[in-house]
Design a protein around this nucleic acid. Structure first.
Lengths: 160, 160
DNA sequence: TATTGTTATACTCTATAACTATA
DNA sequence: TATAGTTATAGAGTATAACAATA
């Protein structure tokens, strides 16, 4: 790989500690705040799983989605991830540069690209899926198995 | 108020829709992804509650924390919010400029500022607390009351 | 030496807007 | 007219590093 030794900064990776002696007031009763804390915790878990790779949650999601939906257009990818077309394009550029994804013209619509995982991309996704799921299980070990299932269900219900 | 008509962009406020016909693969089973979707949903709820105000979740959290802990230092505020000292300072500047917060010297430590809500700040926080909690109840109406309580508990347990 | 606040700087992510090619 | 992709630009948020004053 002809990539420079990755000036990839570690970017302050620490959980949001609960500070002793501080009163969190109404924050402790708000879903928004609890969600953020939980999300930071899971982000750290994700980071442990993908250490050394240059992967972020949106990049991981994009690769998984492309793997499950070969030929997906960039616009649809953006819609799935909840980002603008222009951002989806940058994401696609990033994946293409690393030869994880290929753009192929679509026979049905000459405007759109179809995104496809390369062999290399598929292998990486498989590896990451396993690592992320495994590290997630480790983090979620704070919960019982039924609790984890309940949490997933309630989150889904909340997000609608 | 002598503030310009707020060049405050609305910043693409839309939920992350589930796109029909797209296979989400393993994402549907990962807590990380579900947490993000739920968090976006709650952010939108937060935004509806604070519409017109220039408030963001970190600013709201900061004001609540300062209200509950008068005299808090900027460094501690940063630790509570999980951001760097320099960012906590910018946050404090923002609140001081709007006369929501005052910096007062602390008798015990001449290096640190103590942060205090002004009258105006306290009033705003009270108003926002009610609005955010009320809008959150509306969003969380997708859940039953015990479900909401369970969700809060599981999130807390997960974040540790 | 360590910590608080401060300043300067840089980087990441993502949005908006305008443009082009095609539908 | 509408949509996919592209490009350029801008802004929010937050990090790191270095410095002064104080502990």
């Amino acid at each position: 790989m002809s990539k420079p030794p990755s000036p990839h900064r570690p970017r302050a990776l620490a959980p949001i500690e609960r500070i002793r002696g501080v009163d969190y007031g109404v924050l402790d009763e708000l879903l928004g705040y609890s969600l953020r804390r939980a999300q930071v915790a899971m982000f750290l878990s994700f980071h442990r799983a993908t250490r050394g790779l240059e992967i972020t949650p949106p990049r991981f999601s994009a690769l998984v989605i492309i793997g499950a939906n070969p030929g997906l257009s960039q616009s649809t990818l953006g819609a799935v991830l909840g980002i603008a077309r222009s951002g989806a394009m940058l994401l696609a550029d990033w994946m293409v540069e690393r030869r994880l994804v290929e753009r192929r013209r679509r026979p049905d619509d000459a405007r759109a690209w179809g995104l496809h995982l390369t062999r290399r991309g598929a292998e990486l996704v498989d590896k990451m899926k396993r690592a992320v799921a495994s590290e997630e299980r480790r983090q979620a070990a704070r919960l019982t198995v039924p609790e984890r299932r309940t949490l997933l269900r309630l989150l889904e219900k909340l997000a609608g």
